[in-house]
Simulated assay, not measured.
Amino acid sequence: MSDSLTLSVSSPDEAREPFLRLVARAALVDGQPPFNDQALVDIGKGTRSLLLAERTSTVVGAAIVGQGEFEFVIDPEWREEGLGRQLLEILLRNSEAGLLAWAHGDHPASRRLAASHGFRAVRTLLQLRRELPASAGPGTELPPGISLSTFRGGADVDDWVELNARVFADHAEQGGMTAEDLRFRMSEAWFEPDDFLLLRDAEGRMIGYNWLKIEPDDDRVGEIYVVGVDEAHAGQGLGRFLMNRGLARLVERGCAQAALYVDGENTRAVALYRSLGFTDHTIDVQYRQVLTGRPRG
């Protein structure tokens, strides 16, 4: 049928224009991006596939598939026509069971679609936000022997990858970041070395960091992209110092709001962020397919 949905594998370069338009429209309507950063990095590296969904020769959706998981979005102009269900079923017909899938925003339609196709929620990712003051307040002092600097490439790349792997040893996605992943992000338009704050001990070892992200086309909201402290230095207030210094940097950059993502089960981090004035903004849910055979519905 001429109005049936078709999927085609596309290279990020060939699909750049329609894909970016689709992502921008979805983000505007939904209030958040339809794909996470790691998925976008992976299609750039070629370790995941970008699929464009077309109907009557018009791009109406997109999916990123690979490494045992997928994410997809339907253009807001084409929703309420069952295209999300069609796209999901095409993806499932061409994949093995046990897939993971992200639903950004935890919309009721996503929950219904997941339940009808044998997926259950296995992880929640909270997006928290807080308003920022017009000017940065006085900073707090670091413990003796610990210094603050900013990212300068070179040896900082390997030092950060090693520290990040230790900090997030139980987090396969974040802890698995490689030097290649880091360099890919360094090539992005939003990357600014002075927004990548580093802590070192008296011997010069990297022991903590707060990496900030400010999109060039939306500098009202600054993101605490990832923050971590070496477990050997826990209990010294370094996480709170890095957060406060990061918030001050966002104020210096002219941001009006700060945002961050945190796993709902990370109670210690959630408590820290809430104590700093962050409140709930949206929720992302990761689902795993547990049903075998034909989908229900």
Rank of each mutant, 00 (worst) to 15 (best):
P144N: 07
G154P: 01
L83M: 05
G153I: 05
R123N: 02
A134S: 15
F191W: 12
R85C: 07
R112G: 13
D156R: 00
S110W: 12
E89K: 09
S147M: 00
G139T: 14
H117T: 15
F168A: 02
F119K: 02
R183W: 02
P108Y: 09
A63E: 06
A63I: 12
F119A: 01
G98M: 06
P193C: 07
S147L: 01
A136Q: 07
G139M: 06
E69V: 02
M177W: 15
L100S: 14
L126M: 09
L87T: 09
R152Q: 15
A103L: 06
P143F: 00
S110N: 07
D158A: 07
Q86A: 12
T150K: 04
A169F: 08
Q174T: 14
E77S: 15
A115K: 13
G137T: 10
M186V: 06
R183C: 01
G82L: 09
I74L: 09
A172W: 05
N94P: 06
A165W: 03
G176I: 06
E96A: 12
W78Y: 15
A109S: 14
M177P: 02
R85I: 03
E77R: 15
L197K: 13
L128P: 09
P76H: 11
L113V: 09
R111C: 08
S147Y: 04
S147C: 00
D159N: 00
A136T: 08
H117M: 03
A114G: 10
H107M: 11
L199Q: 05
R79P: 10
G66D: 07
F191K: 05
P144D: 11
H104P: 04
E192N: 14
G105E: 14
R120Y: 08
L126E: 07
A97C: 10
A63K: 12
T124K: 12
L100R: 14
L148S: 04
S149T: 00
E80Q: 15
M186E: 13
T178V: 02
E141N: 05
G137Q: 07
E81Y: 04
L88K: 05
A114S: 15
W102Q: 11
H117R: 13
P108M: 08
E89C: 11
A115V: 15
G66R: 09
E192V: 13
D195I: 04
A134K: 08
A115M: 07
A169R: 08
R183P: 01
A169W: 07
I64T: 04
E162H: 13
D181C: 01
V161I: 14
P144C: 04
P138G: 11
V65M: 14
L197G: 13
V65I: 14
H171W: 03
M186Q: 13
V167E: 04
P144H: 08
S187T: 05
D181F: 03
A62N: 00
L100E: 12
G139H: 08
A109G: 03
V167G: 01
S116W: 04
N164R: 13
F168D: 03
W78I: 01
A97L: 10
R93Y: 07
S95M: 06
A155S: 09
G68P: 03
I90G: 03
S116G: 07
A134C: 04
P138L: 12
S147N: 03
V167T: 05
L198S: 00
A189F: 07
E71H: 11
P108D: 13
S116L: 10
E89W: 10
V122N: 01
L199E: 04
E77M: 14
P193N: 11
G154S: 02
A114D: 08
R120S: 12
